[in-house]
Design a protein around this nucleic acid. Structure first.
Lengths: 133, 133
DNA sequence: ATACAGCTTGACGTTAACGTAAGTAAGACG
DNA sequence: CGTCTTACTTACGTTAACGTCAAGCTGTAT
């Protein structure tokens, strides 16, 4: 409960992830918890990074992309070039997402059509049945 | 070039899939090409099924789901119960897709926010630079 | 002392939908 | 007959993001 660091369980509870996930992120160099003997202690920095990781996932970035973005973020000693790069990557992702959404919308429309068709078919079938009696 | 059946290559060209894909679908019992010696010959039925498979994929059904739907479609000797079931599955899928789209839209909005933020930051940075000169 | 809770490090397993490579057969062409 | 083309089977490889043991350490409550 020290103010600065959190155990793995506290992290799990706070961010709704599994221990495996946190260890996995560490192995992929997304997080860098310090050690107290055996145990991992997650710092404020780790928490900030985890938040960004989870946000990145929501945006559909792969962990590898996220890692690169985090690295840029860290490295970038306010070097506009880096930030510019980050910005571009994000913008590209946005375009991908919008395309994906558009495709999804098309598919949804198509499926709606099919369903209308099926509905009609079922209705006809019911009528036939009624009429046959 | 017989009117009724197509070779694997003709199928691939016609539907823009690889041979591997067609063999894979056969192994998963989605298609049932007949054999002429070694070779596969795809019938009209196979072509109809393939179309449905590809459409199903667009809708985000898994191959296993598609197989089940195709089976129902085949079996269902116009048995309304089966069709009803198919209908329900499709409707469920539609709901999933709509949810997915909504999430995606949220993510897109969030990302747009972030980008606005980044843009501002970059602009400020540029101003600072200008001012410093 | 003992049991238990919580942490650790391996390391193999999972899922979907094919890709890819190796080795072989069979028919067509020149 | 040799070679090309097309197809075949078998089977391991791929990718992402963890899940799921197994086996062992440590600290603490009983």
């Amino acid at each position: 409960m020290s103010e600065e660091t959190m155990t793995i369980r506290e992290m799990c509870d706070a961010y709704d992830v599994t221990p495996r996930t946190l260890r996995f992120y560490e192995s992929k160099e997304l997080l860098f918890p310090i050690r107290e003997g055996q145990k991992r202690l997650f710092t404020k920095r780790d928490r900030a990074r985890l938040k960004l990781i989870l946000r990145g996932k929501r945006f559909g970035f792969s962990l590898e992309e996220i890692r690169q973005l985090l690295d840029l973020y860290d490295m970038g000693d306010q070097q506009a070039t880096q930030l510019q790069r980050t910005y571009e990557v994000a913008q590209h992702r946005l375009k991908d997402m919008e395309e994906q959404r558009d495709e999804l919308n098309e598919a949804i429309d198509d499926l709606r059509e099919q369903l209308k068709w099926g509905e009609q078919f079922l209705a006809d079938l019911a009528n036939q049945k009624d009429a046959a009696q």
